[in-house]
Structures are given as structure tokens and as C-alpha cells.
């Protein structure tokens, strides 16, 4: 593995290994909380604690009952249903508006580009509690508080910065001569967009969409303020669970969500590789 040069001193070599150990520890720090959750979700007890039976690895210490609870308890089912009802629509809105705007922003002569960009990205920067409180008051006034549309709009606003960022990133690598070639061959702007630009920025759009989806799917502060009980999402129910009735069911959901994350991440990675191949950027 280690590729030492003949001129490397002993301390260089020692440092090489020490450095790897340090990095290993940091990676451990990153993964540790996630790794701890998974076994705890199979806890046979009703609290967030490793029981003595679990530590002795006895079979009675483990159970699938928290998973069963998740799939049979109507509260969790409603929450899951709502999450899947809100997140995709919010994502569609973010992606639709966001992609258009990102294409607009990538044109060469946009007045006030910097300011516009700053405003469009601001939902990511403004503290969530302020966004939540602001939307709560304002949406109440215009009758959107506690409605499905209100929550979707709020989540779409929060997801937009991610779409803008990822799509503009793919567009900066975009070769303008391709559209010019297409135009010179007689294609109109719309045809050019769908035939040339769209396929190339698609990975950016999808990855932005995934970020927007996860933002909505994992969002709790805004939904607590703007939502209502009939719109409670998974994070809402989890937050309530942490306050009201602490139960390892939350950990079971976490494990399921982590598994989903891994799948999503792999999708993104595959897409990214595809995009680089398509755009002819070779990994250096």
C-alpha cells in the first residue's frame, strides 16, 4: 500500500501511519453514532439503553417488535404516508422552478446576478427557526398555515437552494458550442434545450432533486410550525416521540432511513460517474 520514496526518512514513515490512524479515528467518529443505532433498534426493551441481555448477545435481548410497531402503528403509518405525500411534490416544485432559474442564471448577461443568487440561496442560510416562525405567522394570515399546500410551499422553498447549487454546478462545465452547433443546424431553442442541454444537466437536476427530497423528508422545524396534526410527517412524529413517549421505534425507523440513504447515495454516485463520462470529464 504505502508507496515510500527512497529519500523518505523514518519519521516520514511513522508520520504516514500516525496520520492514517488519526483519519481512521475521525472516520470512526463520523460513523459511530450511526453504527450504534442499528443494534439498539433490535432492542427487546422499551428504552434507549443496551440491556444486559443485549451485551451478552443473548437472543432474548433482541426482537423485531419495534419494526413491527412501525409497520402496524397507525400513527407511524399516517406519518409515513404524509411524508411521501409532501416530499415528492415539494421536490417537483423545487426542481421545476430551480432548474429554470439555474439555466437563466447561467446565461452570460444577467443583471444583478449576484444579488439574485444570494436571495435564491438564502433559505439554506437563514436559521430554520426564523424561517419557520416567519412562515408560521405569514401563512396563518393568508390561510395557508396547517394546510397541505402551505407545507409543500415551505418545503419547496427550503429545497430550492440545493437545486440551484447542483444545477448551476453542472452548467458551469457545460460547453456552449454544443448549443450553438445545434442552433446553427436549425434547431429552435426549445428543441435545443430538450435534445442537448437537458440530457447533460440531468444528473445535476436529479442530484439537486434528491437533496430537495431529503430536505423535505428530514425537515422538522418548519413542519412543526406550518403543519398540523393531520399533516404530521415522519420527523414530526419522531420529534414528538422523543418528547412524549420515548420508544426505540424511532431507532427502527432510523435504521430503515439509513438503509434508504445508502441506496440514494449509491444512486447519486452512479449518476455522477455517468455525468462525468457523458461530459467527457475524465477522472484525473
Amino acid at each position: 500500500m504505502a508507496n515510500f520514496q527512497p529519500y523518505d526518512t523514518k519519521s516520514d514513515k511513522a508520520w504516514y501511519y500516525i496520520f492514517r490512524v488519526i483519519c481512521g479515528l475521525i472516520f470512526f467518529f463520523l460513523m459511530f453514532p450511526i453504527l450504534v443505532i442499528m443494534p439498539l433498534s433490535f432492542n427487546a426493551g422499551n428504552y434507549f439503553t443496551f440491556t444486559p441481555e443485549m451485551l451478552r448477545l443473548e437472543i432474548e435481548g433482541f426482537s423485531l417488535k419495534h419494526y413491527r410497531d412501525f409497520f402496524t402503528n397507525p400513527d407511524w403509518q399516517v406519518a409515513m404516508y404524509n411524508s411521501f405525500r409532501i416530499a415528492p411534490v415539494a421536490t417537483l416544485l423545487s426542481v421545476g422552478f430551480g432548474t429554470l432559474a439555474a439555466i437563466g442564471l447561467s446565461q452570460s448577461h444577467v443583471p444583478f446576478r449576484r444579488t439574485i443568487m444570494a436571495i435564491l440561496i438564502s433559505p439554506m442560510i437563514v436559521p430554520l427557526i426564523l424561517s419557520a416562525a416567519g412562515m408560521y405567522f405569514f401563512y396563518s394570515r393568508i390561510g395557508l398555515q396547517g394546510t397541505y399546500i402551505g407545507v409543500v410551499l415551505a418545503h419547496a422553498a427550503l429545497g430550492i437552494p440545493f437545486v440551484i447549487i447542483t444545477v448551476t454546478a453542472t452548467l458551469t462545465g457545460f460547453d456552449k458550442s454544443l448549443t450553438r452547433a445545434s442552433a446553427s443546424l436549425g434547431a429552435g431553442p426549445i428543441r435545443t434545450f430538450f435534445k442537448i442541454q437537458m440530457p447533460l444537466i440531468l444528473p445535476g437536476v436529479i442530484s439537486g432533486g434528491l437533496f430537495a427530497f431529503i430536505t423535505s423528508f428530514d425537515e422538522v422545524v418548519v413542519v412543526l410550525f406550518v403543519g398540523s396534526a393531520s399533516l404530521k410527517t415522519l420527523p414530526w412524529e419522531m420529534f414528538n416521540g422523543l418528547r412524549e413517549q420515548i420508544s426505540p421505534t424511532i431507532l427502527a425507523i432510523a435504521t430503515i432511513l439509513i438503509t434508504l440513504s445508502v441506496l440514494l447515495l449509491s444512486t447519486i454516485e452512479i449518476l455522477r460517474r455517468r455525468s462525468e463520462r457523458l461530459r467527457g470529464i475524465s477522472p484525473s
Partner: peptide, 26 residues
């Protein structure tokens, strides 16, 4: 320029209404 602004406008208005104005209001 107009085309670029036209593409940005929907989102800009969207963010203004759903996000910027609510915060100012608060």
C-alpha cells in the same frame, strides 16, 4: 437578458412570497 430574467422570475417571485416576505413580516 430578458430571456434570462424570464427564466429566473418565476422562482424569484416564488421565493419572495413563500420565504422573504414571511420573514420580513415576522
Amino acid at each position: 437578458k430578458l430571456r434570462a430574467l424570464g427564466l429566473i422570475a418565476p422562482l424569484f417571485i416564488f421565493i419572495l412570497i413563500s420565504f422573504v416576505i414571511p420573514i420580513g413580516d415576522m
